[in-house]
Design a binder for these strands. Structure first.
Lengths: 245, 245
DNA sequence: CGAGCACTTGATCGCTTTCAATAGCTGTGG
DNA sequence: CCACAGCTATTGAAAGCGATCAAGTGCTCG
C-alpha cells in the first residue's frame, strides 16, 4: 500500500491550490515538476533529524507530520503540526533545526534544495506564497506561545480540540457552530507533547471535559462537541477566534 | 529630546544592513525613501493595538519594543521582543494580531502599508529579505515554545540571561565566553510575561542563581556572568547554542 | 488466551502561584 | 534636608495545580 504516488502531475495534485506552488503559472509549475519527487513515510518514521543536512525541502501531500524539539534529558515539545499543503524545510539554511516525524503515514512532495533555492530567487510567485505561508505559521506559533505560557491544562485541551474542530469545519465548508464532531489525529502522548503537559494530565482533563458535558467521546479518538461556543469559552479564547494552523 | 530622527537618509541609517532593506540597491532604496517616515514612541506607549487597522508596517530603528497577547482576564504573554532592525507588521493582513508596545523609547521607520505591499510585489530584494527575517523569527518562536512548554523556572531565567548575553556578545563582536556582563532591558514583570512566570518567581530564581554563584548582580538590572558555560548548562540548552532573536 | 499498547484513574509530591508584608529606590514638596 | 508617595523588587507562608509514581482497564493482534 506504499508509493501509489509514484509521480503525479502538478495539475492533478490535491494540494495544488494551497501549497507553496499555489500561485504558480503553468510554466513555473513545469519548472517545479522537474525538480520534484515523491517520498512516502510510515507512521512513526522520522522524516528529518534535527541537526542533519537537509537535501530537500517540500510539501506534505497527505497525512500528518509533526515538528518536535527534544532536550538532552528527554523532555520533548512539539513546535508545529504539519498538515497537507504545509511546507517543510528552510531555504537558505543547510541543517535542520527540528525533528520532523510522520504522525500518520505521510506522502511528501520533495524538491531538491539547491535547485529550489535558485527557483525562489527567480520566481517571485513561489517566494511570495512562501512568505505568506511563513507569516501565517509565525502567527500560529505566537498564538501557541500564549497557550503554552499562560493557559491552564483544561484550557489547553479545550483549545486543542476547538482548533481541530474549526479546521475540520473549514475544510468541509460547514458552518463552525452547533453540533460537530472530530477525530483526534494524535495519541494522548502526542497531545501532551504539543500542549506542554504530561499524558496523564491530558487524559484527566479530557475526562473532566466529558464529565462536564463539554464534549462526548466515542472511542478514544472520536470527539463530539454539542456546543462549540461552550468549548471556546472553556478554551479561554476571545470569541473572535484567531485561527491556528 | 524627541524627534531628532526627523528624516535620515537610508544610506546613513544605523540598521541599513540588517533591516528589511538590507539587500536593496540604491534605486530600490530611493523607492523606499519615498514612502517612509519616522515616528517616535515613549517607553510604555502602545505602538499598535491588537485588532486595530494597521496603516503602516516598518522597522525598529532604535530602542526595544515588545509583542504581547492578553487574555480577557488579564493574563499576558509576550510573544516577541523587537530589537533594532526587526520588522513590525504583516503585509497582506489588514488588522494587527498582537499588541506592540514600546519597552524603552523607540524610533520606528514606518512605511505606508499599501505602497509597501506593491513594492514587495515588484521588488524581489525586499520580499527575499523579509522571507529570510520571517523564517528566523519563526525558528526563534519555536525555540521559545520549548522554553515555555518544558523548561523549569530556573532554566527559563538562565535561558533568558544567556540569550541576552549572547546577543550582546555578538553585537560587540566579542568572543561569547569567559567573563561578560549585560544589562537586562526588561523589568521583572516583563521578564515574567516573556517567560510565562509570575514576577515573584522571576525574582526568586534570579536570587537563587545569584546565591549559587551562576551570576552576580550590580543593581537590579545589571548582571555579570563569571562562567557562560555554567549558565548555558543551567539553561538546559544543548551546548550547540541555537540562536534566538 | 496472553502480550503489548494506549489510555484511565488514584495517591502523593513538589514546584510555581497566590497572597501578603517588607525593602530599596526615585522624585516631589514642605 | 527630610518626609512621603509611588514604584520596583525581594522575601515569606500557604495553597493549588500539574507531575510523578503506580495500578488497573480495555482494546488489538498474535
Amino acid at each position: 500500500m506504499q508509493d501509489h504516488f509514484v509521480h503525479v502531475q502538478c495539475g492533478d495534485c490535491p494540494i495544488r491550490h494551497r501549497a507553496v506552488c499555489a500561485r504558480c503559472e503553468t510554466d513555473e509549475l513545469a519548472q517545479l515538476e522537474q525538480i520534484k519527487y515523491y517520498r512516502s513515510f510510515q507512521a512513526g518514521q522520522t522524516i528529518i533529524w534535527s541537526g542533519d543536512r537537509m537535501e530537500f525541502v517540500g510539501s506534505v501531500v497527505s497525512g500528518i507530520a509533526s515538528l518536535t524539539q527534544t532536550m538532552e534529558d528527554g523532555r520533548r515539545q512539539m513546535v508545529g503540526l504539519l498538515l497537507p499543503s504545509d511546507f517543510v524545510g528552510r531555504p537558505g539554511r543547510s541543517t535542520a533545526a527540528f525533528d520532523v516525524t510522520a504522525t500518520t503515514d505521510v506522502v511528501m512532495c520533495c524538491f531538491r534544495k539547491k535547485p529550489f533555492e535558485t527557483l525562489i530567487a527567480e520566481t517571485p510567485h513561489i517566494a511570495q506564497r512562501l512568505l505568506e505561508m511563513t507569516l501565517d505559521e509565525l502567527d500560529a506559533a505566537r498564538e501557541w506561545m500564549l497557550l503554552l505560557g499562560r493557559k491552564t491544562a483544561r484550557e489547553k485541551i479545550a483549545s486543542l480540540i476547538s482548533i481541530i474542530a474549526r479546521r475540520e469545519a473549514a475544510l468541509n465548508k460547514k458552518k463552525a457552530t452547533g453540533q460537530l464532531s472530530v477525530d483526534l489525529p494524535l495519541t494522548r502522548e502526542e497531545m501532551a507533547d504539543y500542549l506542554g503537559l504530561t499524558l496523564e494530565t491530558v487524559s484527566r482533563q479530557i475526562s473532566a471535559l466529558k464529565k462536564d458535558g463539554v464534549i462526548t467521546l466515542e472511542g478514544n479518538r472520536h470527539v463530539s462537541i454539542p456546543d462549540l461556543d461552550r468549548l471556546l469559552e472553556e478554551a479561554g479564547d476571545d470569541t473572535d477566534g484567531g485561527m491556528l494552523v
